[in-house]
Simulated scan of single mutants.
Amino acid sequence: MTAKEYLQQAYRLNELIDSDVHELERLRDLAGRISSPNFGERVQSSRNLDAPFVKYLGDIMEMEEKIQKELCRLVVLKKQILAALESVADREERLLLTYRYLNNESWEQIAEDLSVSMSTVHRIHASALRNFSVPNQS
């Protein structure tokens, strides 16, 4: 695994969590928009009397559980990456990798944070990736 692939694990997991949170919001919105059953209608014994939103509750609970597990994985992964970043001797390189891969900052924001140009950001990034050692994974 390359340095960039190793570091991007947290970045990508964070994007996945954001996507799952968006899906959870969509499910909650759907559950809130569905009308209740019309109990004035003639009811047959084989018909389900649950309100239509009930079927979404299970999906919502599953998505919340999935997000919680992903968040736990992200916390552990970020701790591992942070520990690995301690081996990067250059402070600017370490900061840049932290801003990009742990804080999910844009290149523009990183340039502003470090008070450097975009070309300098990319130069520091390339150097940082060369100087970063991927920890042995068991």
Rank of each mutant, 00 (worst) to 15 (best):
L74T: 06
A89S: 13
A128C: 01
I67V: 08
K78H: 03
K79M: 09
K78S: 04
R91H: 06
R73H: 14
A126I: 00
S119Y: 14
H125N: 14
H125Y: 15
C72M: 07
K78P: 01
R94G: 08
I124Q: 11
K66R: 14
S106C: 09
C72T: 10
T120D: 00
L97I: 02
R94F: 10
V121D: 00
S115N: 08
R94Y: 09
L74S: 05
R123S: 14
K78E: 13
T98W: 03
V121M: 04
L77I: 06
Q80A: 10
A89C: 06
E86W: 02
E70I: 02
T98K: 11
Q80F: 09
H122P: 02
E93M: 12
S127Y: 03
E86I: 13
M63L: 08
E92K: 15
Q80E: 15
H125L: 12
A126P: 00
W107S: 08
E105T: 00
K79L: 08
Q68C: 07
Q68D: 05
L71M: 09
E112I: 11
D113Y: 03
L97K: 08
N103Y: 14
R123A: 14
V88N: 02
L114F: 13
K66M: 04
V75W: 00
I110F: 03
H122A: 06
L74Q: 07
V116L: 02
L102R: 08
I81C: 06
A89T: 14
T120P: 00
V88G: 00
A84F: 10
A126E: 14
E105M: 04
D113F: 01
L96I: 00
E92C: 07
M63W: 01
M63R: 15
R100N: 06
V88R: 05
V88C: 07
E65C: 04
L102W: 11
R100P: 06
L95E: 03
A128S: 05
D113W: 00
L95M: 14
V88P: 03
